[in-house]
């Protein structure tokens, strides 16, 4: 079996195994798994409204997936996407409501602010990793909770003690009447186009620029890259910063598109952590990430329909997603099984 085929089969088999175990969980808990999955399907595709909402849900996942994947390619594990996304969300929400500018300046400014906020939040672990060899995983985890509390405190300041920031001005909004009219007033917004552009940008940076070449090279082998004259420290910081910018933009999608404001968060948004699943499933390739985001975004949005239509708690979707991550991460065993299977077939021939 070719390596390429195995690389595609591992995620596919993981998805199927995840869905099967999800069905077993439903059956054991006394629900009808078929009804459950029909409800899931309807939650994704039922009508134009649900489809609009599904695409809306996919959008931030693309960004968080790209953020995780981009850092991964340079050998960095950015668990801090969650925190960077929160900071981006806050920055975009603030710029969106604090300034009065024409749309042509306001919207790009809000997006830029979000990207910068995310990048800045990711700069800290990048710098610590580059200069002091501190492991980025722990630092980014700690910064997630720091971001959560800091953002909540800042929201209180911005909103004069309130629970949420004011609604952003129309000039900074990504919403469009056109999408509302064709999707029965779903919250679908222009963000998904930005997400597609971001996918292309990541592909372009990684595959077509010297910067991308160096980033990947550092990811493969730090020492060899150093020996070849690359500035490893600079590349580590850059990788984190760009990754953080993607994450920040993911937050901007929530601020400028979905909610048009930011409320105090009682817990993590989960988008950043799910981004790890998205990146993993997409094998850290830009277009793979897009596919992964489409799958997980659809599952998440479809899951919302399960309690009302089939009585199954939406958490079943999170269970399935977690299982898929386990299976993809344990890809070693699936690879071994596939190779044995492949060998047997060869011998039979």
């Amino acid at each position: 079996m070719s390596k390429r085929l195995v690389n595609i089969l591992v995620p596919l088999i993981s998805i199927i195994l995840g869905l099967i175990i999800g069905a077993i969980v439903m059956a054991v808990s006394g629900f009808n798994p078929i009804d459950g999955y029909i409800a899931l399907w309807n939650g994704i595709f039922m009508d134009t409204y649900t489809m609009g909402e599904t695409v809306r849900q996919i959008t931030p996942y693309v960004f968080s997936g790209l953020a995780v994947a981009f850092a991964f390619r340079t050998g960095l594990f950015n668990i801090g996407v969650e925190g960077q996304l929160i900071m981006g969300w806050l920055a975009a929400a603030w710029v969106g409501q604090a300034f009065d500018l024409p749309a042509i300046i306001h919207l790009p400014l809000a997006l830029l602010a979000a990207a910068l906020a995310g990048a800045l939040w990711a700069f800290i672990p990048g710098l610590l990793k580059a200069k002091l060899q501190v492991h980025e995983v722990i630092v980014t985890i700690m910064l997630n909770y720091t971001a959560l509390h800091v953002a909540n405190a800042l929201i209180e300041v911005i909103a004069d003690g309130g629970e949420r920031t004011e609604r952003i001005h129309e000039t900074a909004s990504l919403r469009s009447q056109f999408f509302e009219s064709i999707t029965d007033y779903s919250r679908l917004h222009w963000g998904f186009l930005l997400a597609l552009i971001a996918v292309v940008i990541m592909w372009f940076i990684l595959e077509k620029t010297t910067l991308g070449y160096e980033l990947k090279s550092v990811g493969f082998n730090k020492n060899a890259s150093q020996y070849a004259g690359m500035n490893v420290n600079k590349n580590i910081i850059l990788a984190m910063v760009i990754s953080g910018a993607f994450a920040g933009l993911g937050g901007a999608m929530e601020a400028l598109g979905t909610f048009e404001n930011m409320s105090k968060l009682h817990a993590m948004t989960g988008i950043g952590f799910d981004g790890i699943a998205v990146a993993l499933l997409g094998a850290n390739q830009p277009f793979g990430v897009l596919l992964g985001a489409i799958l997980f975004g659809s599952l998440k949005n479809g899951g919302l329909n399960m309690p009302s239509e089939a009585g199954v708690p939406t958490e079943i979707v999170s269970i399935v997603i977690a299982l898929i991550i386990f299976f993809v991460a344990s890809g070693y065993i699936i690879r071994v099984a596939l190779e044995r299977f492949g060998k047997k077939r060869k011998e039979e021939k």
Binding site: I79, F273, L280, S318, I319, L323, I325, A329, S330, I333
Partner: peptide, 18 residues
Amino acid sequence: LRADQTVSGVALNLLGLA
């Protein structure tokens, strides 16, 4: 199964809550 430990840990968190 030699899975990435950080990734499995993250999955464990998702799974536990769910």
